[in-house]
Design a protein around this nucleic acid. Sequence first.
DNA 1: ATAAATATGCGAATGAGTTGCATATGCAGT
DNA 2: ACTGCATATGCAACTCATTCGCATATTTAT
Lengths: 120, 120
Amino acid sequence: MTTARRAILKALENSEDHPDALMLHDRAKEFDPTIAQATVYRTMRLLEQEGLVEKHDFGNGRARYEEAEKEQHDHLINLSTGEIIEFHDTDLEALKIEIAKRLGFDLKDHRLELYGVPKE
Amino acid sequence: MTTARRAILKALENSEDHPDALMLHDRAKEFDPTIAQATVYRTMRLLEQEGLVEKHDFGNGRARYEEAEKEQHDHLINLSTGEIIEFHDTDLEALKIEIAKRLGFDLKDHRLELYGVPKE
DNA sequence: ATAAATATGCGAATGAGTTGCATATGCAGT
DNA sequence: ACTGCATATGCAACTCATTCGCATATTTAT
């Protein structure tokens, strides 16, 4: 547990917005001004492997991260603002498992993103 | 309509396996041996913009393509083999739209991939 | 406190995809 | 078919996110 890692973890805890590696680097600098980009990348990879963090690709070139804790959820991206909204739907979860089963598979993972614009 | 583009289109028609740009380049060489990578990339971008092709990211670094025609479908990736299976589920479609609506959005696009291993 | 193990910073390397530019090609209009 | 011009191509150089090598610094086990 190093200064750099503590800085990254704090930056992550303070972030509610699915930050990317660059944002995390900036935010972590507040707690460890000398932290390097490479360290952020290395640490995020580690955290992801440990299952403490989830990595997402919302299609903007950079990977985005969030703490892996809360109940399973999916994301809706507001195409007008880029805002990311989390949602959870039990029917949807069940349906995903059911579809995989129907195709002869055990569902191990999945990725669902909805892209939408605000109504009217 | 150039030789290079015809080659790429033929390569694409002959491909049932969601090829990436490298695979398409190789396959297009059969019809135009001097075709360049850059041309494949440029053409795929064009085809995607024209809506003739869909670009997917199945999480292996390279974008994968398929002709945009058939009815809307999602993908299940067999984690054991890398094979990509297409499926369509009406309930799922309806549910996605319904969830977006519930959150106050009109669904414009979505991305769903299931990752699974063969049962038992 | 010391040594062995691990993490860091830096800059260089990677790899997918893009781009600048000079040349080649497709496509009118004749 | 022929000329002109717009567009596409090949090539090599470039971008940008991410990774890596390595010498040094920090942790952790002893």
